[in-house]
Design a protein around this nucleic acid. Structure first.
Lengths: 145, 145
DNA sequence: GTAGTAACTGCAACATTGTAGCATTAAATG
DNA sequence: CATTTAATGCTACAATGTTGCAGTTACTAC
């Protein structure tokens, strides 16, 4: 499965790429570089920080993964769905967790200035997740952090 | 005008804050920290990098300015409109320019999991601006950079 | 299976964006 | 003008990501 995805795009099948793809596919939420790194370490996939960045770059470049800009300034990655389905995301401003909103497809109807071209739309809802919601409204993280 | 905005929120009127507010109000597009810094330097407002960050933080905290996550990982800032109007933004993936789409209000109707609270929605269209559009699709910046 | 080659890795060094701590300056107040 | 404390300007540091390059390894051809 993962091997297939890689060879189909003319890439070499390497330990890191396989593990990254499988981890992304298994996750139900977008993962940051850092989270991915820890998860790879847990399943004993030795890897360098830079290698991981490059593996992710390659996956995004070939449409296997997608890059999402969270509210903080770290990219998050999710496996691209085969059907090209896109969806919006929810970012908890307290703990930084990002979840997918499967049923909310970013749509828009607008007039851009002449000559502009839109490639994709990114819709991010900001707020507080269930574990953070009861607490204060901002600036005071309540989750594990 | 700027002085008023500041005192109304119990802040001290300082060179940097006034200049930042006036620059944001005069700009028709969100500005990054870096762009703001250069603009202040041009009109001979001496300031420290950190001071600028803190001035911007203060403005956002008091609802005078708004923070927007561009596609790259630098914040951009725009003057908050008095009527509370919000709008979507367009981010050029080539040159990084961000423009406001006044007529596109980020709206959504969705069901979030129980306990989640939405504070605001951020809608960012990604693509290529007029000066970059004729060129290649990605990764090859064509603008001044 | 072995050899050759280019893609990938791993390391070190660096770039960008943003924060924290703290001594100093200056805006507001009486 | 004197006092108070918010705001500034350092310096140092943190987080996230990138570049260059030597060494390794996955694939291809034999």
């Amino acid at each position: 499965m993962a091997r297939e995805l890689i060879t189909r795009h003319g890439g070499r099948v390497t330990r890191t790429r396989i593990a990254v793809i499988e981890t992304l596919l298994a996750s139900d939420q977008p993962l940051s570089h850092d989270e991915l790194g820890s998860m790879l370490a847990e399943i004993d996939i030795p890897h360098d920080r830079v290698t991981l960045y490059r593996a992710l770059d390659w996956l995004v470049e070939h449409g296997i993964a997608r890059r999402i800009a969270g509210g903080d300034r770290a990219w998050r990655f999710e496996a691209a769905r085969a059907d090209g389905h896109r969806h919006a995301h929810f970012h908890c401003d307290h703990c930084g967790q990002v979840i997918c909103l499967e049923h909310l497809e970013p749509s828009f109807s607008t007039v851009l200035p002449d000559g502009y071209r839109v490639d994709r739309a990114e819709l991010i809802l900001h707020g507080a997740c269930a574990s953070c919601s009861p607490q204060r409204s901002a600036n005071e993280p309540c989750c594990p952090h």
